[in-house]
Simulated scan of single mutants.
Amino acid sequence: MDAYIDLQLLPDPEFPAPMLRNALFAKLHRALVSHGQGRIGISFPQVGKKAGDLGDCLRLHGQASDLETLMASGWLQGMRDHLTTFAIRPVPEGTQHRVVRRVQAQSSPERLRRRLMRRKGLAADEARAAIPDSAAERLNLPWLDIGSQSTRQTFRLFIEHLPPQATPSPGTFSAYGLSNQASIPWF
């Protein structure tokens, strides 16, 4: 990864920042499905400045040619009035690296109970005893609200920035620009 581009959300009196961030990310996800090919990663350089907030800047990381192709695809149509798009820039020398990944919570005890009933043949009351409502996992991570194209349901995409590391980790990125192994430059 030799380049990056920052997309900075602008304050808008009509739309709260989280709504704009969710809309921007949804557009990015669709663009990465078409043009990302696992080579473009993302980060949120302002993460953690406010508790549970990803900040108002989305940074795209990749090779300059991949970022140019993505930006030429017109994926930002309809969002340009709500953000400042900076030029593609080279990654500064001597940067640290960081893995930015998706974390999925086991947050639905009811879903876990249905699964247990299917797998073990338990009755509903037995499954409820085995998995109480208190078993729901709560994550203390920032998230984006994403609408699924296939199911039309909205879900939370929890994002974790792992601690900085001295050397890059190779790998590919998902259509969300996230990875459990591949790192992005952090500066």
Rank of each mutant, 00 (worst) to 15 (best):
R113N: 02
G55P: 08
G62V: 09
P92I: 15
G48L: 09
S65N: 13
L76Q: 13
S107V: 06
R114F: 03
L67E: 13
G38T: 13
Q46R: 15
Q46A: 14
L76N: 09
C57N: 06
R89G: 08
F86A: 13
F44S: 06
R39L: 13
E68G: 04
K49E: 06
V103Q: 00
S108L: 04
G78P: 04
R118N: 14
R89D: 00
G94L: 01
Q46W: 11
Q77Y: 08
D66K: 03
A72N: 11
S107P: 03
S73L: 12
T69W: 00
H97M: 10
Q104D: 08
E93Q: 15
R118M: 12
T69Y: 00
T95M: 12
T69F: 06
L67D: 07
Q106N: 11
G48N: 05
H82W: 06
R102D: 09
A51T: 10
V47H: 02
D81N: 09
R102I: 13
G74I: 05
Q63I: 04
R59H: 11
G36W: 08
S65C: 06
T85D: 00
A87C: 07
Q63H: 12
P45F: 11
K50G: 01
A51P: 02
H97E: 01
E93V: 09
R98M: 14
G94T: 15
H97V: 10
R115K: 11
G38S: 01
V103L: 14
L58I: 12
G94N: 15
V100Y: 05
T84D: 11
R80K: 07
R98T: 15
A87Y: 01
P90L: 08
L58Y: 05
G52C: 05
T95Q: 04
Q37T: 04
Q63F: 03
L76I: 10
I42A: 12
G94D: 13
L112V: 07
Q96L: 15
P109A: 14
T85M: 02
R111Q: 05
T95V: 15
I40Q: 12
R59L: 01
Q37D: 02
I88Y: 07
P45C: 13
Q77E: 10
R39F: 00
G52E: 14
R114L: 14
A105H: 05
L83V: 10
L116T: 11
L60H: 04
H82E: 07
Q104C: 01
K49V: 09
V103G: 03
D66C: 07
L116P: 03
D81R: 10
Q104N: 07
G74H: 10
L112I: 09
L76F: 03
V100M: 03
W75E: 02
S43L: 15
I88M: 02
R59D: 05
L116C: 02
E110A: 15
R113C: 03
Q63W: 05
V99T: 15
A87I: 04
L54K: 12
K49N: 11
G48D: 08
S65M: 04
G94K: 14
S108Q: 09
Q63S: 13
P45G: 14
A105R: 10
T84C: 06
